[in-house]
Structures are given as C-alpha cells and as structure tokens.
C-alpha cells in the first residue's frame, strides 16, 4: 500500500508547480504571466520568493523539517503580500490552496478511503502553516504602522532636541550644591 507521503513525493514537482501558479493567480493575469516567466530574482522578487517558498515549504512539510525553514519562507512571501492591494484573507489564501493543489494532482487517489486519515493529518499541517502566515501578516502590518511613525519622528526629533538643549528648562538644571 502506497502511503500519502510517497504519493506526495512522487508528484512533488507537479503539486508545487500547481501551488505556485495558484499563488500567482492572486494577481491579474498579465502580471501573473510576467511573474511566471521572469526567473531573475532581482527583476522578479514576487515570483522568485513564491517559487522558492512554495517548494521549500512543501518539502519541509513532507520531511517534517524544523519550523524555522517554513517560517523563513513564509516571511519572504507574506512580507510582500502584506503591503500589496490585498485583504488579509487574500494575502494568506495561497497557503490553503496547497490542499486543492494536492487533491488536484493526486486525483482519485486522494479520495481513496485508506488515504482520508493521512490527508486529514496533512491538511492539519497546512492549517498550522496558515496560522503562522496570519501571525506573520499581522506582524508586517504592525511594522508598516511603526515605520510610518518612526519616519515622522526622524524628521523632528533632532531639531527639537537641539532647541531644548539651547533653551534648557531652568527647573531641570542640577540643584545648587550650596
């Protein structure tokens, strides 16, 4: 009896490709095809991070690799999507689409009653990745707000500090030792 793990390994390239394409499908068609085509990581960071990330996350799920690898690649992908024209759900939906990609590639085998439990366990893993993706998304959004505040502060803090130094508050002066 073939296990789900073996099936996933056998179909790895097709599953990952399908997952990658589904992730790109968040973008309008013209953009998605450009991101699919261009392989240079500097000319196409969106496509590059998604291509690399989907592959690495899928492998990590199969091999039970440490969660750091998954988190690293999630960061790469979600950080970009967190500042794009997407709602939160659109930004992390690509994680869930791995489930469909697996079922689409496994075809009948996915509906084999023997496979149901294993698939359920796999789905659970995907859900955990999705939860991590949501945490990452929120962290990114919070960072964007912080960056906005820091930028404004950088524009005024130096000059205010200097003005205050010159016109120092006499009440703040060190007490007279006498």
């Amino acid at each position: 009896m073939t296990t789900l793990g073996e099936l996933l390994r056998d179909n790895r390239d097709m599953i990952v490709q399908r997952w990658f394409y589904d992730g790109l499908a968040t973008y309008p068609e013209d953009s998605a095809s450009a991101f699919k085509r261009q392989k240079d990581p500097f000319a196409n960071p969106i496509g590059h991070s998604l291509r690399l990330g989907t592959k690495a996350i899928f492998d990590a799920l199969l091999d039970g690799a440490d969660s750091d690898t998954i988190q690293h690649h999630l960061n790469e992908i979600v950080k970009i999507r967190a500042v794009q024209q997407m709602t939160a759900s659109e930004a992390i939906r690509f994680v869930f689409s791995l489930k469909q990609a697996v079922r689409a590639e496994l075809g009948h085998a996915a509906r084999d009653p023997q496979m149901v439990d294993e698939l359920e366990a796999f789905d659970g893993k995907v859900d955990r990745v999705a939860l991590a993706a949501f945490d990452t998304y929120v962290q990114c959004r919070e960072q964007v707000s912080e960056l906005r505040v820091s930028e404004v502060k950088r524009q005024v803090s130096w000059i205010i500090d200097r003005v205050n130094r010159r016109d120092a508050n006499p009440e703040m002066a060190p007490a007279d030792p006498a």
Binding site: T26, S31, A34, F35, P45, I46, I80, Q84, Q85
Partner: peptide, 11 residues
C-alpha cells in the same frame, strides 16, 4: 516589467 511599482505591486 521594468517599473519598480509594477515589480512590487503586481498591478
């Protein structure tokens, strides 16, 4: 695909 806004936004 040469504009930084396109590369960064996908719009």
């Amino acid at each position: 695909d040469k504009c930084h806004f396109f590369i960064g936004s996908g719009d």
